[in-house]
């Protein structure tokens, strides 16, 4: 009897300890599924007491989901979502500003400009052009080196890019061109590019995937996807146009109303440690903490120099007008081939 009581007490105690030990965080993310296990494992090396429950989907779906859940948020933390999306959430009052430890070490481009930032950056996710070398050769296409190259008649019908109305990647390209070239020149460039586009896709990674499988010769997409496909054996060459590349910050934020604020803060703290930055660097050439990044295979060594000085505020406030103009110019016309 005594033994039994002792055993029960012990079990109860252990259960209590366990409960303390395992805080579960629901983390929404758009990070590639293949990286999630790694991210959680690295984090748990330092913080075994916090369990991450991932909910992952593409950027658009996760953003829509977060917004739809506004009345009763399910996520505690967002770890790995586009800065543009986080800006939307911030404007809806859905994020808790928090200045994590080591905030000062981040490049100012990679954090919310508020004094207590609503989000802090992880890495940059940059545009790239995926060129299928086999198809390019078959069609006698020279390797493009700049955005302007893509408007040359030789590429007519060989270029695929994401529709900015459906895809964040697509918008990132359009906004970068407008910033790089100025509004008039930018639209003029897109008019030329439009002549060569064989189709616009709804997904940002699709153009690169299509290039990888030979469905098109050239896909305007983003670097990370191209690099991964290349690793898997796709006959791709990644081109980083010399004028400059659009990019987007991937960032972390605490969702307002979480009842696990402490654990959430721990996670955000960790997400900008040097260790975390080195982890991001395994897949991304540019990370938020200057001086950490090592060259990554398939990425240009001077990645940092290639990306434009992206004005996210400008992009966000002009998004609606840009998309409307884009649809006016290219959506209607796309029917008449």
């Amino acid at each position: 009897m005594k033994h039994l009581k002792k055993a029960l007490a012990l079990t109860a105690l252990m259960a209590a300890v366990n409960a303390n030990a395992q805080t579960e965080l629901t983390v929404y993310t758009a990070v590639e599924a293949e990286d999630l296990k790694k991210y959680a494992a690295r984090f748990n090396e330092d913080h075994p007491d916090i369990k991450i429950n991932w909910v992952r989907d593409s950027t658009g779906v996760i953003t829509a989901r977060l917004l739809a859940e506004k009345e009763n948020p399910q996520a505690d933390v967002v770890w790995g979502l586009a800065g543009t999306s986080l800006l939307l959430l911030k404007n809806e009052g859905m994020l808790t500003p928090y200045a994590p430890e080591g905030l000062e070490k981040l490049s100012p481009k990679f954090r919310d400009r508020d004094e207590t930032p609503s989000w802090v950056g992880m890495d940059a996710w940059m545009a790239a052009v995926c060129v299928n070398t086999i198809e390019a050769e078959k069609n006698n296409l020279p390797m493009p080196t700049s955005w302007q190259d893509l408007t040359k008649p030789v590429y007519r019908g060989h270029v695929v890019m994401p529709n900015p109305n459906s895809s964040g990647t697509g918008f990132l390209d359009v906004s970068a061109w407008l910033q790089l070239m100025g509004e008039d020149k930018g639209w003029e460039f897109m008019d030329g590019l439009h002549q060569n586009i064989s189709r616009y896709t709804h997904s940002g990674s699709k153009p690169c995937k299509m290039a990888a499988s030979g469905e098109t010769s050239i896909g305007v997409s983003f670097a990370f996807r191209g690099a991964r496909l290349k690793e898997k054996g796709a006959p791709l060459e990644l081109v980083f146009p010399e004028e400059g590349l659009g990019w987007e910050v991937e960032a972390t934020a605490i969702v307002d109303g979480t009842d696990k604020l402490e654990a959430a803060q721990t996670l955000v703290d960790w997400s900008i440690t040097r260790q975390a930055m080195e982890m991001y660097n395994e897949g991304y050439a540019i990370v938020a903490m200057p001086g950490v990044a090592q060259p990554v295979e398939h990425f240009p060594a001077n990645a940092e120099a290639l990306i434009i000085d992206n004005d996210f505020g400008w992009a966000a406030s002009n998004r609606e007008a840009i998309l409307t103009e884009w649809a006016r110019r290219y959506d209607g016309k796309s029917e008449a081939k």
Partner: peptide
């Protein structure tokens, strides 16, 4: 239509564009 429709516009993909692409519920 989303996967194989290219840019051929139909109402259903328009919902996708509005909701997933631009978060305009």
């Amino acid at each position: 239509p989303k996967v194989i429709g290219g840019q051929f516009d139909v109402l259903a993909t328009d919902i996708y564009k509005q909701v997933i692409g631009q978060q305009k519920f």
